[in-house]
Amino acid sequence: MTLIGRTADRGVTTLTLDSPANRNALSASLVGELRAALAACAADDTVRAVLLTHTGTTFCAGADLKAPPDPEAFVGLMREIVALPRPV
């Protein structure tokens, strides 16, 4: 099951958190997929900006307590968002 959707339009890549059953909580799987998607955006010269959005009623409920991400992976995700060479 894919937890991150990806679309592109006119240089803007939209990454969609797609785990509405747990209100898009940051599970280990979601964090891993989001990190991979951000890395792909950083490596793609056609990406001018990245937009984060969601499915369901909640953008992100925080950490998933049933399947939490490794703390280093979570911190890595935050750093990658800030350091991405395109606006997020």
Score class of each variant (00 low, 15 high):
Gly76Glu: 04
Asp70Pro: 10
Pro69Val: 12
Ala67Ser: 05
Phe59Ala: 06
Thr2Lys: 12
Asp45Ala: 10
Leu15Asn: 07
Glu80Trp: 07
Ala49Pro: 07
Pro20Gly: 08
Asp44Val: 04
Met1Ser: 14
Thr13Phe: 05
Met78Gly: 11
Leu51Asn: 12
Leu52Val: 02
Met78Ser: 13
Ala43Leu: 04
Leu3His: 09
Leu38Met: 05
Leu3Lys: 09
Lys66Trp: 01
Gly5Leu: 04
Pro71Met: 11
Pro69Thr: 13
Thr14Asn: 03
Ser19Thr: 15
Thr55Val: 15
Ser19Ile: 15
Val47Cys: 05
Thr57Met: 09
Pro87Ala: 12
Met1Leu: 11
Leu77Gly: 05
Ser27Gln: 07
Ala49Phe: 14
Ser29Tyr: 13
Val47Lys: 03
Gly5Ser: 03
Gly76Thr: 15
Thr14Met: 08
Leu84Trp: 09
Ala49Glu: 13
Gly62Gln: 15
Leu26Ser: 01
Leu15Lys: 06
Val31Gly: 06
Pro87Lys: 14
Thr53Gly: 02
Val82Ala: 15
Arg6Asp: 10
Leu26Lys: 09
Leu51Ile: 01
Val50Ile: 06
Asp45Gly: 03
Gly5Trp: 06
Thr7Leu: 06
Ala61Met: 03
Asp45Trp: 00
Ile4Ala: 11
Ala83Gly: 05
Thr14Tyr: 03
Val50Gly: 00
Met1Cys: 10
Arg6Ala: 14
Ala63Gly: 14
Ala39Ser: 15
Gly11Ser: 07
Val82Phe: 12
Pro68Asp: 04
Ala25Gly: 01
Leu65Ala: 13
Gly11Ala: 04
Arg10Tyr: 01
Pro85Asn: 10
Ile81Phe: 07
Gly76Met: 02
Cys60Gly: 02
Arg10Ile: 10
Pro85Ser: 11
Ala28Trp: 04
Ala73Leu: 13
Asp18Val: 07
Ala83Cys: 01
Thr14Ile: 06
Ala73Phe: 03
Asp44Glu: 04
Leu15Arg: 07
Cys60Phe: 09
Leu51Gly: 04
Glu33Asp: 09
Leu3Asn: 08
Phe59Asn: 07
Leu30Met: 00
Leu26Pro: 01
Asp44Met: 04
Ile4Trp: 07
Ile4Leu: 07
Lys66Phe: 08
Cys41Pro: 01
Thr58Phe: 01
Thr46Gly: 10
Ala83Arg: 15
Phe59Glu: 08
Thr55Met: 12
Thr2Pro: 14
Thr14Cys: 05
Arg6Gly: 09
Leu38Ala: 00
Thr55Ser: 13
Ala8Ile: 12
Lys66Leu: 14
Met78Leu: 14
Met78Phe: 06
Ala43Phe: 00
Thr58Asp: 06
Arg86Glu: 09
Glu72Gly: 15
Met1Val: 15
Gly5Met: 08
Thr7Gly: 08
Ala37Lys: 06
Ala39Gln: 15
Glu80Ala: 12
Val31Ile: 02
Leu38Gln: 03
Ala63His: 04
Ala73His: 10
Ser27His: 03
Ala36Asp: 13
Ala43Asn: 03
Ala73Met: 04
Thr7Asp: 10
Ala36Tyr: 12
Thr57His: 03
Ala37Asp: 14
Thr46Arg: 13
Ala67Gly: 07
Pro87Phe: 11
Leu26Ile: 04
Glu72Pro: 01
Phe74Leu: 15
Arg79Asp: 09
Thr13Arg: 06
Arg23Phe: 14
Gly32His: 12
Asp64Met: 09
Ala49Gln: 13
Glu80Asn: 04
Ile81Ser: 03
Lys66Ser: 13
